[in-house]
């Protein structure tokens, strides 16, 4: 089906765990939807809410923030800060009426290639029925 809606997902992956996890999925030749645009950040704790809003503004249908499991952070506690901040961003986006499915967070370690592919598969499946994101997209 050529005209099926293919969501565009921007995934912010932390350099030490999630990025390595996605790399593992790649080198292990695991199949997963090509809808993701990965962006490596140094730590999930370095995620500014502006990155997320910027992605939505530039037309992302979904945004994923992924970091190390709690306790595994390369910078000891970066992902704990991220957990707080992202929770607030998520609540705020829901408050203004954005679909809650569009913004997700996950913990993916460097060994969890399978988990990463599963998260992307689920994310794409969830985004397909709700269609393109037009609320925060820049119109001109």
């Amino acid at each position: 089906m050529a005209d099926e809606f293919e969501p565009k997902i921007v995934a912010f992956l932390c350099k030490w765990c999630s990025s390595a996890g996605s790399d593992l999925a790649g080198v292990s030749r695991m199949q997963y939807p090509p809808n993701v645009i990965p962006i490596t950040v140094m730590c999930s704790g370095s995620m500014s809410p502006l990155y997320i809003l910027s992605a939505f503004k530039k037309g992302a249908d979904g945004v994923l923030v992924s970091g190390c499991h709690p306790g595994d952070c390369h910078y000891i506690k970066g992902n704990f800060y991220a957990r707080r901040r992202i929770a607030l961003v998520k609540k705020l986006l829901e408050f203004i009426g954005l679909e809650p499915q569009r913004f997700q967070m996950s913990w993916v370690s460097a060994a969890e290639g399978t988990k990463y592919t599963q998260i992307i598969k689920d994310f794409v499946e969830e985004l397909k029925p709700i269609g393109p994101q037009t609320k925060l997209r820049r119109s001109s």
């Binding site: 502006l50 809003l53 910027s54 503004k57 961003v89 705020l92 925060l136 820049r138 001109s140």
Partner: peptide, 23 residues
């Protein structure tokens, strides 16, 4: 990060970022 024009999308980003910075 934000364009100068007071468009809907830019206004949203401005107000959401302000809210987060004041959280």
């Amino acid at each position: 990060w934000i364009e100068r024009s007071p468009d809907s999308s830019e206004n949203f980003v401005y107000h959401l970022v302000r809210a987060i910075h004041l959280a």
